[in-house]
Design a protein around this nucleic acid. Structure first.
Lengths: 242, 242, 242, 242
DNA sequence: CATGAATGAGCTTTCATTCAT
DNA sequence: CATGAATGAAAGCTCATTCAT
């Protein structure tokens, strides 16, 4: 946590990472800083798994340190507190999601295909990174109080809405999309349909009597999202944008 | 692990209410059975609030018993274990949702208006019963393991899909709805869009920079759901159902 | 029941003492390892007393930690669970008994005197270590389930039977002992008479109207054991071994 | 607990049994008193089993009331407290042992055979009534404090010693037994060897590597007791009683 | 830097017992 | 007589955290 931390964030953790990250060398045998960085990374990765699986209260410091093959003490050394660790887990989760999003290369001249690509990306990402969903649910259970304490969080505002806005504009220009649909709503629509389906798959499966996570079921749902999103944004025959 | 299996669920919990409810008298001073039932109900209500607010691990037995103005011990007397109590909370949550759904009176001859009514109901119910959302998230975090232990859960399969199926059929008959849209998908679409928006409102608000729970924001979202659902199910000019 | 199986026994308990014992320094102020070892030893000693006095269920973790002037938590730190602690108490009890036995120096050429020495040792040991008796009774009440979980228990098989076998052989060679008496039975005879008398002294005293633990009563009983054992193993005038 | 109870013995229980026992009728349908007596007996029997199996602390009131298919409350109604119940269990245990002893018919003119019969009885009784052993061990763990509170206990002083004294006298008269052996010691020798072997069978089995409770092992041990007792009491060729 | 030991509050659960019909 | 409800203390155990090298 390099930036000026809120009162509840411990001091120890504030220095360590900046230092070690800065000095990382490229060469040969693992330096002292590298092994320290490795310890820190191990803990962060382990914490992500444990919090994702057991929630914030259910994810005990001991579970994490064991999963990281380290010691409880190290968590306090690097992250100051359980809460500080959780905040970094959230930041890291957003950062990774953003990186993945940015790797998406879309052709704005093909707005329909690009929208489908966005949908495919979202469904695929949620499906492959279930920790993203459970961590977000956990944080929402706590009413967003941890992410509110993060300084870095703001840097990670999703570029997705801007991307979708571009696609929508392009479609409008091409005369295929309606002009009265907001990018924000399309983004939320895609996120909602992808997220809910996977987030609630366990309870839904119990009632619908089918395994929603089976590949063909997921593919079918993705197709449905596509048709829904496209019908929402597409200008119908006879309609005009004013 | 004393109470994980249904078989070990204490009999008291299963038997007591039926008995006591049956014997309830209409008159005067609260009978012994009535006050016992009141104790049980208080605990169940308090547990619903506490679990919804703090999750399963975060919702301690002590918090619950204090909120219910009762004693830890009574939770074990009536529900056998914390887990047994949580299972009943889930059952109760589903039961109440079902009751509310059944109170919806829809005119199948007006499928568009009725679909809007369903959407309004869902958005309203999720909005007015935030515990429904957080309890479901908590249960999904635990991979549905508690509801899987419930005997009664199966009886609570939502009638919503059947209702929507009726409306879709009616719309098809009237020539206004497409025939290739499944009721299950429409149900999931409505649930997803309503649920996600409220479930993730805390983390979304941080990024979108607006309060999603503000009344006008919620109304705007509901209108968007309506348009999306209707565009998904409506037969466009020039299209036919084959 | 987190620690019933040996596999789940915390490693700390198994590893810690070996390590810390090895590093113990001879000099000056108590090292960190020494004080840790002291904490562990205090708990083990206190647990021996408390379990011996109150039994397994009656011997609460709190009673033990207070008697050890330590904390409940440390019992779990060093022994993993109450059960793990009890198992180590049993192991320790056997180990001490074995050590004491091995300190007995017997002259096989004097089998009669040596048998008397064995009897004296047993009566004296049971009398001076009443915890040996009550711990064994407690463990037998639990049908030997704790000692069955001990890995080390097998190493502590009493050498007493082998010693007695030597004495019997010597006596046979000298023509004073019968050859048809098994060492196992002589061992059990000595143990039984010594053990029962002390183990049941409280209930027996109530019925016999005398204090069996009074020194002269004990001496008289020891003399009776001697005569009984010797009459059992001694070849009578006129008898031969073959 | 009909007799004047010590301070710690509850009052309620003091009346009930005397009443119900007195009014018991011989005839027809189970009277109210009879069913009350049955409830009381069920509890006593269940408590005997539970205390024998789990010890005093380990034998919870709930375990007992469930085993008796009754209610916790009934234990307090009939026995005043857990301790009062345990005392009655002990009294009942002694009473049954006494009754069994008195049923032994011995021919004093055949002292050797009769001694063997006594040994056979003891071994058989301990073997068939393991609760006798574990209850006595439990009571000795508590240093006889419960039986000390029993008024009735004194009435149950075992007639065994007197019987053995008779047999010894007869044997002396016949010139086959020594006159310097006390009946009390012979009684203790028989009891000790029978008791210890069964009481400690679980821990002994672990070390001796054989199942001491197997029928042939038990028979072999009984034969050993016989030879030991007889060699202890028998006058050897060449010896005289004075 | 790393690590083992220590700490006390808090957890879920069970205990023996009493109250109120 | 019988029984369901209530009670508070105490049980075994886990928690996040800090101390001391």
């Amino acid at each position: 946590m390099p930036t000026s931390a809120p009162a509840t964030r411990p001091k120890v953790a504030a220095r360590a990472p900046a230092k070690t990250l800065a000095k990382r060398k490229s060469g040969a045998a693992p330096s002292r800083e590298q092994s320290a960085q490795a310890t820190r990374d191990n803990i962060l990765r382990a914490a992500t798994k444990v919090f994702a699986r057991y929630g914030y209260e259910g994810g005990s410091v001991e579970k994490i340190s064991k999963a990281a093959k380290s010691f409880d003490r190290m968590i306090y050394y690097y992250f100051g507190s359980k809460e500080g660790l959780f905040i970094e887990v959230l930041e890291d989760m957003y950062r990774r999601m953003n990186e993945a999003e940015q790797a998406l290369s879309l052709d704005a001249e093909q707005p329909v295909e690009s929208l489908k690509a966005v949908i495919a990306f979202v469904v695929n990402y949620y499906s492959k990174h279930p920790e993203f969903i459970t961590l977000l649910n956990t944080e929402n259970l706590h009413r967003g109080k941890h992410i509110a304490k993060s300084q870095r969080a703001k840097d990670y505002s999703s570029p997705a809405i801007a991307v979708i806005a571009q696609l929508l504009e392009s479609g409008v220009r091409q005369g295929v999309f309606r002009s009265d649909v907001s990018a924000r709503n399309v983004y939320l629509l895609i996120a909602a349909t992808g997220y809910f389906y996977l987030s609630n798959s366990h309870t839904l499966s119990a009632f619908l009597g089918e395994n929603l996570r089976a590949p063909h079921a997921l593919a079918q749902w993705q197709a449905f999202i596509e048709s829904t999103v496209l019908r929402t944004v597409t200008l119908q025959p006879g309609e005009t944008n004013g």
